[in-house]
Nucleic acid binder design. Structure first.
Lengths: 198, 198
DNA sequence: AAGTGGTCTAGACCACGCA
DNA sequence: GCGTGGTCTAGACCACTTC
């Protein structure tokens, strides 16, 4: 068998030196095997919280997947699942050999978060997002048309919905979709356009 | 060793019978080991295409992870990664022993899509979502408070933003976030609450 | 009760980017 | 070139839902 790779077996050499670098982080990450919450979820939540609270600064490095796996005594796959989810959520980023880095600012407010959807934001925070449609109608509205800088004859889909996190109403949204540009939005609707009152 | 589970080793009994059920699906799924595109990506793409084209009808079943893995001669983990991604995108759903089912209609309209965020919806359609913040302010508003069924002294974050797909403005949204319930939304903002004009 | 997906393990090889 | 993340394997146990 040509196991010609990986210096597994070099003892705990890396831990000894590098552990100090991540001492602060490692001390704050703990897994509870008794709860029903999966390991990777616990980690996601804890890391996200550390970032939100500023204990993990933007731009700083997280332990490598292998290192954290060894430190927490879980498999690399579990760490990877956590890191991957956070990478997908653009909370972490990867830099070749540079490892995994924190991308979001500690307290990135709404201005940054609004690049993500509400649902995505909620899921990152470990909440279950849902949505309740209050009304939907196809309208013509000159004011909105002017905002979009398009002919005032364009029709818009007007949506009002409540956004919930864990079943609790957190936001109310009113949205106008330009049906000329996004016709798929109107699919399945059987509502005739009507004139919007001024 | 107490390998007291899984009838692995019962030969290809399941395949023989069940393969006919999924004959159409299995015949259309093929993995190319030569391309650089990962297996799970190839599968995601192919399954998504089959759904879009209507060859896989909404509500119908997909082969179980184990079965598809065996049929394509890959590990269950690889199939799972594909299925999981599609589940997260709400394209597939899971039903206990019932297996994995196709959830989205080929061209589901807004009424279904509004359970997802704008960004997610865009990404599924292969467009690049972005957002432009027009205004953000912390306000008190009795009308909104009554909608949320909460004390009228609660403060809200009022956002106006334009949603873009591939750089084209597709929607305008006005959102009110209840800062009492979602304080993290206001982090990083230095805007004093002001009274909302009636 | 049988089979499903959910989670986790312990390994392996690869491409790529810093050092 | 070395360590990183990316992909993949072959297995295991569990909770849960449907049969």
């Amino acid at each position: 068998m040509n196991l010609s790779m990986n210096n597994v077996g070099l003892a705990d050499a890396p831990s000894a030196e590098e552990a100090t670098r991540f001492h602060g982080v490692l001390a704050k990450l703990q897994l509870d095997p008794l709860t029903s919450e999966p390991f990777y979820q616990q980690l996601k939540r804890q890391i996200h919280n550390l970032i939100d609270s500023g204990e993990l600064a933007a731009g700083s490095n997280l332990p490598s997947e292998r290192m954290l796996a060894e430190a927490l005594n879980v498999s690399r796959t579990t760490i990877k699942r956590c890191y991957n989810d956070l990478r997908e959520a653009q909370v972490l980023s990867t830099h070749g050999r540079g490892g995994t880095q924190i991308q979001a600012k500690p307290n990135a407010g709404v201005s940054a978060n609004r690049l993500k959807g509400f649902a995505e934001d909620m899921r990152e925070r470990g909440m279950v997002p849902s949505s309740q449609l209050l009304s939907q109608e196809v309208v013509q509205d000159r004011m909105i048309a002017s905002i979009f800088d398009c002919p005032s004859v364009n029709t818009f889909l007007r949506l009002v919905r409540v956004r919930l996190g864990d079943g609790i109403p957190l936001a109310r949204e009113v949205a106008w979709y330009d049906l000329t540009l996004a016709p798929h939005m109107g699919l399945g609707l059987h509502i005739l356009a009507r004139q919007m009152p001024a």
